[in-house]
């Protein structure tokens, strides 16, 4: 290395030093420590005691873990496609030359600003069985259906019904999807108009243009958003935790991996077990991200890159 290169290296390291410290203390050390703790009996109050793979064995036989894993995966697999469809749909609608585009964009965006605590309390109220607004909007439709089909459908008591609690959470999430709408809208506005004109001259229908122009051109943005949503969905904690008043819902229907980590770590002070869970969550995130990157590589169209 020449002296100048050496100087540059030192300069660079000095500038990024805050991140290096942060990385070592809050990323690298915790990951390594998690592996160690997950092999120990550890309660923070005392020194970790080596257990071997006992925590993982317990985990394997722990029905609550499987429940949390199932909830987490189901939530991600349902909520992410739903919110993607909704936000792409909204963005496409918004991308029309309509009056008040900015106002609509703001309206759709605002809910994503609501702090988790306010969001969860608001939706606890929205989803309230008898008095919630959601059910009061749903009931007239149910009445019509019941009258026509002679059925006896009842509006659910969302958050107190193990079959509906997850649905309630997904509904809450859909309301807060606005950030993606803004991103998709910006993505749509980057697509050159000539592409549409060319496609129109080729005699394509609006739907075909959406499939063959919009979606491919938007695919890098979709890919990025989906990746971020996966990472977000898998660590979901605050909203379900508050929705259930600091619990995990009826029949643990709102128990997620992050919730279960929290419970083990800070309710039962079972840090070793919590670390084993945390590593499972990490592996899940890496796995799902890799799958989507693999899949994305084939499907995503990077124009000019």
């Amino acid at each position: 290395m020449m002296p100048g290169e050496h100087r540059n290296l030192i300069k660079g390291l000095v500038f990024i030093s805050p991140w290096i410290v942060g990385f070592l203390a809050f990323n690298l050390y915790p990951l390594i420590a998690s592996i160690w703790f997950s092999l120990c009996d550890y309660s923070v109050l005392s020194q970790p005691v080596f257990l071997g793979v006992q925590n993982y064995v317990d985990l394997w036989h722990d029905p609550v873990f499987w429940k949390a894993l199932r909830n987490t995966v189901v939530f991600a697999l349902v909520a992410i496609p739903l919110s993607s469809f909704l936000s792409i749909g909204l963005a496409v609608l918004l991308n029309q030359p309509i009056a008040g585009q900015g106002i609509y964009r703001t309206i759709f965006f605002l809910p994503s600003l609501v702090p988790a605590i306010s969001l969860a309390i608001l939706w606890q109220w929205m989803l309230n069985g008898p008095m919630g607004l959601v059910n009061n909007l749903v009931r007239p439709f149910l009445n019509i259906i019941n009258a026509v089909c002679g059925s006896h459908l009842q509006a659910p008591d969302w958050l107190n019904d193990p079959n509906f609690a997850l649905g309630g959470l997904i509904l809450t999430g859909l309301w807060g999807t606005g950030q993606a709408v803004v991103i998709y809208l910006a993505g749509l506005q980057e697509i050159p108009l000539e592409l549409y004109e060319a496609a129109e001259l080729d005699g394509t229908s609006a739907w075909q243009r959406f499939l063959h122009v919009t979606l491919p051109m938007l695919s890098p943005v979709i890919f990025f958003n989906v990746l971020m949503s996966i990472i977000g969905a898998l660590q979901t904690f605050a909203v379900p935790y508050i929705l259930t008043g600091g619990g995990d819902g009826p029949g643990r229907s709102l128990l997620f991996l992050a919730t279960y980590i929290y419970q083990n770590a800070f309710d039962y002070w079972n840090m070793g077990y919590a670390s084993a869970l945390a590593l499972c969550l990490f592996v899940l995130i890496i796995a799902l991200s890799l799958v989507s990157v693999r899949y994305g590589e084939k499907k995503v169209h990077y124009s000019g890159r």
Binding site: Y29, S34, V44, I231, A258, I261, S275, A278, L279
Partner: peptide, 23 residues
């Protein structure tokens, strides 16, 4: 280094909160 930084965006807080708490 920058690649490592990007990769750390994939580590959510719940995954590392136990050792951080210990720290």
């Amino acid at each position: 280094c920058f690649f490592v930084l990007l990769a750390t965006m994939m580590i959510p807080f719940p995954v590392v909160m136990v050792p951080i708490y210990g720290l």
